[in-house]
Design a binder for these strands. Sequence first.
DNA 1: AAACTCTGTTGTTCTGAGTCAACACGCGGC
DNA 2: GCCGCGTGTTGACTCAGAACAACAGAGTTT
Lengths: 255, 255
Amino acid sequence: MESHSPNPSAGPTRHTGIPSNDGDADHFCSSCAFAEACSIAGYGKPELNDLHCLVEHVGPFEPGQRIFRAGDAFRALFAVRDGMIKTTLVDAEGREQVLGFYLPGELVGLDAIYPEHYPCDAIALETTQCCRFSFPAMSALAARQPKIQQHLFRLLSKELGSASLLAGDHSADERLAAFLIDLGDRYAARGLSGTEFRLSMARADIANYLRLAAETVSRVLGRFREQKLIAIDGRKVALLDTPRLRELARCVLNA
Amino acid sequence: MESHSPNPSAGPTRHTGIPSNDGDADHFCSSCAFAEACSIAGYGKPELNDLHCLVEHVGPFEPGQRIFRAGDAFRALFAVRDGMIKTTLVDAEGREQVLGFYLPGELVGLDAIYPEHYPCDAIALETTQCCRFSFPAMSALAARQPKIQQHLFRLLSKELGSASLLAGDHSADERLAAFLIDLGDRYAARGLSGTEFRLSMARADIANYLRLAAETVSRVLGRFREQKLIAIDGRKVALLDTPRLRELARCVLNA
DNA sequence: AAACTCTGTTGTTCTGAGTCAACACGCGGC
DNA sequence: GCCGCGTGTTGACTCAGAACAACAGAGTTT
């Protein structure tokens, strides 16, 4: 592990309901996957309370710890509050396959609804805290609150659209440019810098996610640096020439 | 076009509601994407009527005709009644990318919910008839009928899971074996033969869908024939050794 | 029946990315 | 300090599949 938290509490801790002393709740909630649903429902109204009552804070999870495992019964969706999660599939031959990376505000577990079991492992990449949304409670609420139902449909459909992107056959350069631009855009949507951020995942994870060899990722990032497209030092990256990167990424990202 | 229907009516025809003389309605509905939702609701009950009232039969569409185009406003989901549909994305460079093939009973358009516009073209590969489900009416019904809401969540989640499959990095042999096995399984789920069926799409479409060159598809199919895994004549294919094919496909298909 | 088009197959060459291997760096433990 | 370990970078070689090209068969058109 690159950085190991000095926090002595090894396992995840659980808080039922919303702690009253949660100072950053408002900040987090404003960029959470359900922010839109909440604001439509109207802060302070009973509907919002309904939504908050089915939420549970879980964590912290230390790097490498699993939030859920492939095969576990599906009970809940998880929104990342802080940190980062990767989801991985282990295929018949035992090879790991990275399906996605989830930033704060994003929702993990939507692909578990149909099989009713999580199809993949969810693994913390950094010290990570989550909101746990009970899915039965969530569906019940969605049935009463059309806006929330609509929101869930949209979240599912959105993930469906982005899943198609990685599927195309693109060069290593295009894939990496798209990866960096996409991460940047997602950080920006969260209100953080979209041009300077930390890659929480190892090069091998990036490579696996993009279906490339780790060596190829190294080489392409090196070339991008030579071409002054990015500055990169370890896991700290800065996008220097977003227009050219976006141009490279265009055929991957745009539908 | 390989086979051109002699049907003189060029454009798609529309029937509002369910024609009373639709002899095969029951047969089709029993294998449609909403069959489960209908049977849960209970045939003959008012809920089923609700569902049927928001359905419209559209078609026939002739091969090459579009059911919807990328960019069209999203109003409805389409279930294939008869024939076959491919969905294709046209990227910035104008290159076509096949996203999926849809058999009778399957639902097209779920990826349009989020963007509120169809992200891709839907093109008939054979003379094709569809059921058109108005999405606003569908959501309204889902809000009243939790089972139907649940069913839609499941359909979305299912498609999300299968989208991950093609994303893996697999050899041409594995991809083609998985493609054939998957098609067979889907035909079988529909009540048709899972080992002998027609490939409605051109080799170039298969290749594009699997992110291979058309020549590679030809060669691999030829090799499969030599190895007596399949018998293939033009677009008619028979799976001769499903166990071995399934073994080949294993790391692609199984999660 | 010749010319054309569309689809599919086969042969040859070429290349992007994988694989194997060596090595550099930072970090924690002894 | 030294060692081991995980992570990342770089170089040399290999290979699966792409690209290019030629051609065959089946329909259509003239």
